[in-house]
Nucleic acid binder design. Sequence first.
DNA 1: GCTTGACCTTCCCATGATTGGAAACTTATA
DNA 2: TATAAGTTTCCAATCATGGGAAGGTCAAGC
Lengths: 141, 141
Amino acid sequence: MKSVVTIREAAARSGVSAKMIRHYESIGLIAPPIRAENNYRFYDPRLIHELGFIHRARELGFSIADIGALLALWRDRNRPSAEVKAIALSQIAVLEAKADALRAMSATLRHLAAHCHGDDRPDCPILENLAGDQSITQSRK
Amino acid sequence: MKSVVTIREAAARSGVSAKMIRHYESIGLIAPPIRAENNYRFYDPRLIHELGFIHRARELGFSIADIGALLALWRDRNRPSAEVKAIALSQIAVLEAKADALRAMSATLRHLAAHCHGDDRPDCPILENLAGDQSITQSRK
DNA sequence: GCTTGACCTTCCCATGATTGGAAACTTATA
DNA sequence: TATAAGTTTCCAATCATGGGAAGGTCAAGC
């Protein structure tokens, strides 16, 4: 198993598409790999490892900026874990805020849809609500 | 209170920014408003109403494409409510899938962060996990 | 009348992460 | 040698929104 591979193989091993590998290089997130005589990029295990790191961080929703910071901390053997944890906690807060917003939208829509016949008749509380009629969402038990 | 107003007033009344009002017109989501002799746009209550509709639909996370369909249904007095409900149910599914994905990310991160000291010491399960070390996320109680 | 400031217009560009594709080149297969 | 499959760079599109420039228009105050 070769340890220095083309961009296609690096993509397969890291889970990052070849397109995005080039992109991450262009924005300076990863170092440029070595080039063969034919100008092809070749990736060593260290770079592939970093790409895998990026891939997993993206799966956790980290922004590219955050990943840049995390990579810098990861490369620093003496980094304080507090810095990493602070980024993670901030990201948790962002994720939960987004999830809450989506849940709120979903709950409102479910409420409206529950009152919509969903048949051939034209009257529809969903449209009425979007049109500004408050009678559905107003709770006046 | 004038019933035909400038774009600024239409923005204030509908909750859609003037920028976005022009944008929605440019993509055909709303009809072009009348123009005064000086080429200024002027909005009548019907258009302002539609902009309010769009604003509320955006708050519920509908895409512009979906809003176009909803607007068409809204303008059609004889539309079957089933079509509206189908769009809403699809949107609910999208929202909940996104919320679930965010919650899963958050849960994983919370789990990792809980095991991170968050002090001056360099060892950090968060970075270890991102680096590909599975020992944290593997649950082997 | 002239200046100032607050509008309006169109146009281009940026965001964030990713994908698609074109044009040109190299390599491997048949 | 033809072809298919890789690679390179560059440009563009996505989605919804915002920023800003450059110029036209309008009202108020002096």
